[in-house]
Design a protein around this nucleic acid. Structure first.
Lengths: 197, 197
DNA sequence: CTACTTTCTTAACTTTAGTGAACGCTTACA
DNA sequence: TGTAAGCGTTCACTAAAGTTAAGAAAGTAG
């Protein structure tokens, strides 16, 4: 489904944080028909699937999760202006995790062939991708560091401060898993925090 | 300190996993004098420092750590053929963590200006950097996922299997911190595992 | 070599997370 | 509309990590 100018603009405001684009370059990107609207619950990537698709969230929320011993383990949420290149795209091996929509979402789906097309018509795209990827890497490292250096309670308080929207829009059991604990522990932890105040 | 052909070769074997290089291109890289030998304990990056240096380990072991409430929190170890671009290089803001040598090490130090030089003489370097960065990002995501989805005991068993060298070459209290627990808990955990067998 | 510091381990006790079960509450759907 | 399934919370109990303290072992400096 093609979407309007608003979505295009939203994308370019984001991309131009990394590299200023000409009208022609923007046209190359728009011409690829990469904008999609998906329903809550849509699975974009399954375990064991080999996909070459990368995703970018314009609106809504996606999550990645593993199924380990029959249990869902949510490892990441992606919301507005965040992108994901699943590990399987790089490794060209079957995916170890799932990617699905927590809410109805507006996303961009690109794949390796499209990137080839863009890179050939628009060589500076390589620079854009490098900067984007380096930026994401640095952020991911910070995420990992924060997780390692804090307790579940601190992690919850951290989310409460930095991504309070998540607590509203995401089911508690997914949030618990994301914090590295069980839903029961999250309930308890929240009660504990309320008590302290 | 300049080092011999062996080190150069080691680097190129690594880089050519991502992009085949010509003799001239290799010469551009070698001419930059980026090889360094450092002593155990050398601090390469300090908290609050703004550095533009990236590092690559040819031999030895580096670690990143935070000091939180006066306590060291080790978040990563980098050994042979692993590279680090500290967050502060990307954000151009003061570093939140330290980087230092766990052992005497042979490393490559590069900075943003050098990358400019290489990129201008050798445009395909941009592609190399992108691939390297995307690959590192995917690995970092897997690291984070593994940490989130496992208990300290599972993490220890995982290290025992995948990076057994770390257990030998790294002090226990740094390893404990890396696993997200206190040194006392690591001692106990190891005793528990031995008992089970 | 000795004195000092750092590292590692053990122990007792406290705090927190995991587990299994039960209870309302909402949602889905037959 | 009634039944079932799923979700969030609470509880009692178990298991594991944090905390504090002490002592043994290893490494370092004078």
């Amino acid at each position: 489904m093609k979407l309007g100018q608003v979505m295009h603009d939203k994308l370019f405001v984001f991309l131009e944080k990394y590299l200023t684009l000409t009208k022609d370059e923007k046209q190359v990107i728009v011409s690829l028909d990469i904008f999609h609207s998906i329903k809550k619950g849509t699975v974009l990537l399954e375990e064991d699937q080999v996909s070459t698709n990368s995703f970018f969230v314009l609106n809504g929320c996606l999550r990645t999760y593993y199924i380990i011993d029959g249990e869902e383990k949510t490892t990441a949420f992606y919301t507005e202006m965040e992108g994901i290149t699943p590990h399987c795209v790089m490794s060209k091996r079957p995916s170890e995790y799932y990617l699905s929509a927590v809410e109805d979402s507006l996303i961009i789906v690109s794949n390796l062939e499209m990137e080839e097309v863009i890179n050939s018509k628009f060589p500076r795209f390589e620079i854009l991708c490098r900067r984007l990827s380096e930026d994401r890497l640095a952020k991911k490292q910070i995420d990992l560091d924060e997780f390692k250096t804090s307790s579940p309670e601190q992690r919850y308080l951290n989310i409460l401060e930095k991504r309070p929207d998540l607590i509203q829009r995401v089911p508690q059991h997914q949030l618990a898993s994301y914090l590295g604990i069980k839903p029961q522990s999250l309930s308890r932890l929240r009660a504990r925090i309320l008590e302290k105040k």
